[in-house]
C-alpha cells in the first residue's frame, strides 16, 4: 500500500480488505501459520495506511471497511466454561484470535478517528443493527477486547448523533437484563464508563428519560452481587448526575438506603464510600432532607462488628465538609448517633 501509485491505492486497499475477510482457527495454533502471517501483515498495512494517509477514505471504500470489520469482530462469544466463573477471582478466558482481532479493532479506531472520516457516509453502514451487535460484544471475557469496544463505542456515540438515543436505550436493556435476569454481563464497567462521559455532557434541565435511567437502572444496579467489579464507575455516574441536578440527591440517598447491603460487608464499605462521594457534592438544603435516615444507617455501620465497616463510617468525621454539615445540623444528627457512639466506645471488640 505504501509503494502503490495513488490512482491504484483504493483498488488495492479494497483487495486487502477483502483478503482480511478470511478467518483463521487460532485454537489450533499450528494450523495455517503462513496464512495467519499474511493476514497479520495486511492488517498492519491497513492500520498504517488509514492512520497516516489523507484521501484514503473515499465513499466506495466505506462498505468494504465495515464488511471486513463486521466479518472479523461479530461472532458468537464462547460460553463461559465454568458456570461458577467469578470475575473477581478467576482469570478470564482470553480471545485466541487476538493477534488478528486486535489489529481489526485498531484499524476500526483509526478509521473513526481519521480526519477524513465522514459520519454522513458511514451511517449507511454503521446502523442500529451494527451498534446492537457491537454492544453484545461487551460481554466478551477478554478485557483487552472490552477496552477497545469502550473507546470505539465512545467515538461512535460522539460522531453519530442519530444513533445516540438508540445506544442509550440498548444500554438500558443490557443493564435491566443484567439486574433482573442474568446477573451476568462482563462489560458493565466499560458501559458505565461511557455513560459517565454521556451524563457529564447532559444539557440542563435534564430530560425525564435521563432521570428515569438514574432511578430505574443506576440505583437498582447497586443490588447486584458482583457490584465490586463496576462500583467505582457506577458511583462516578451517580455523582455526575447529582452535580448536574442536585434535586435528585434525596432520591439517590433514599435509594441507596433501600438497597443497603445486609449481609455483605464488602458491599457496605463500597456504599459508605459512595455516600461520602455524594456528601462531598451535596447542597446543605439537600442534606437536611436526608440526614435523619442517613445517620441512622451510619450509626448502624459504626456499631458493625466488622471493623472495616465501622472504620469506614467513622472516617466520615475526617472529612471537613461533612463535619461542617454535621455541626450545622447537630440537633438532628447527634441524637441519631450519640447513643451508638457511646456504646461502641465501651463495648466494641476492636
Amino acid at each position: 500500500l505504501k509503494d502503490v501509485a495513488v490512482a491504484e491505492l483504493h483498488e488495492l486497499l479494497c483487495k486487502k480488505l477483502q483478503q482480511c475477510c478470511v478467518l483463521f482457527d487460532f485454537l489450533d495454533c499450528v494450523a495455517d501459520l503462513k496464512g495467519k502471517e499474511i493476514k497479520r501483515a495486511a492488517l498492519n498495512e491497513l492500520v498504517e495506511c488509514v492512520a497516516t494517509n489523507r484521501g484514503v477514505l473515499i465513499e466506495p471504500v466505506y462498505p468494504e471497511i465495515i464488511k471486513m470489520i463486521s466479518v472479523n469482530i461479530f461472532r458468537t462469544l464462547p460460553p463461559t466454561e465454568n458456570p461458577e466463573f467469578d470475575p473477581e477471582e478467576d482469570e478470564p478466558n482470553l480471545e485466541p484470535s487476538w493477534p488478528h482481532l486486535q489489529l481489526v479493532y485498531e484499524f476500526f479506531l483509526r478509521f473513526l478517528e481519521s480526519p477524513d472520516f465522514q459520519p454522513s457516509v458511514a451511517k449507511r453502514y454503521v446502523d442500529q443493527k451494527f451498534v446492537l451487535m457491537l454492544l453484545e460484544l461487551f460481554d466478551s471475557e477478554d478485557p483487552r477486547e472490552r477496552e477497545y469496544l469502550k473507546t470505539i463505542l465512545h467515538r461512535v456515540y460522539g460522531k453519530f448523533l442519530g444513533l445516540r438515543a438508540y445506544i442509550r436505550k440498548q444500554c438500558n436493556n443490557i443493564f435491566l437484563r443484567f439486574i433482573y435476569e442474568t446477573e451476568h454481563f462482563n462489560g458493565v464497567a466499560e458501559l458505565l464508563e461511557i455513560l459517565g462521559s454521556i451524563i457529564n455532557g447532559f444539557a440542563l434541565p435534564l430530560k425525564t428519560e435521563h432521570k428515569h435511567f438514574l432511578v430505574r437502572v443506576l440505583i437498582p444496579l447497586h443490588s447486584v452481587k458482583s457490584l465490586s467489579i463496576f462500583h467505582a464507575q457506577l458511583a462516578y455516574c451517580v455523582v455526575q448526575f447529582l452535580e448536574k441536578d442536585a434535586t435528585l440527591t434525596e432520591h439517590v440517598i433514599r435509594g441507596l438506603l433501600k438497597y443497603w447491603p445486609k449481609t455483605c460487608t464488602q458491599k457496605e464499605v463500597m456504599f459508605l464510600g459512595e455516600i461520602e462521594e455524594i456528601l462531598d457534592v451535596i447542597e446543605p438544603s439537600q442534606f437536611v432532607k436526608v440526614q435523619e435516615p442517613l445517620f441512622k444507617q451510619i450509626a448502624r455501620c459504626i456499631s458493625s462488628p466488622h471493623f472495616q465497616v465501622a472504620e469506614r463510617a467513622l472516617y466520615f468525621w475526617n472529612n471537613e465538609y461533612i463535619l461542617s454539615l454535621i455541626e450545622d445540623n447537630c440537633h438532628t444528627v447527634l441524637p441519631a448517633i450519640f447513643g451508638t457512639l457511646y456504646r461502641v466506645s465501651k463495648e466494641h471488640w476492636n
Binding site: K159, E193, G196, N200, Q233
Partner: peptide, 30 residues
C-alpha cells in the same frame, strides 16, 4: 459552608477512567 473537595483518601483513588464528556446538544468532535 463553602463546598470543599474532600481530601483524597489513601485507598480511594480519583477515577482514572473518566472519559472525555460528550455534549448532548451538539455533534461533539470527539
Amino acid at each position: 459552608p463553602q463546598k470543599k473537595k474532600r481530601p483524597k483518601l489513601p485507598n480511594f483513588p480519583a477515577p482514572h477512567f473518566a472519559m472525555p464528556p460528550i455534549h448532548e446538544d451538539n455533534l461533539e468532535k470527539v
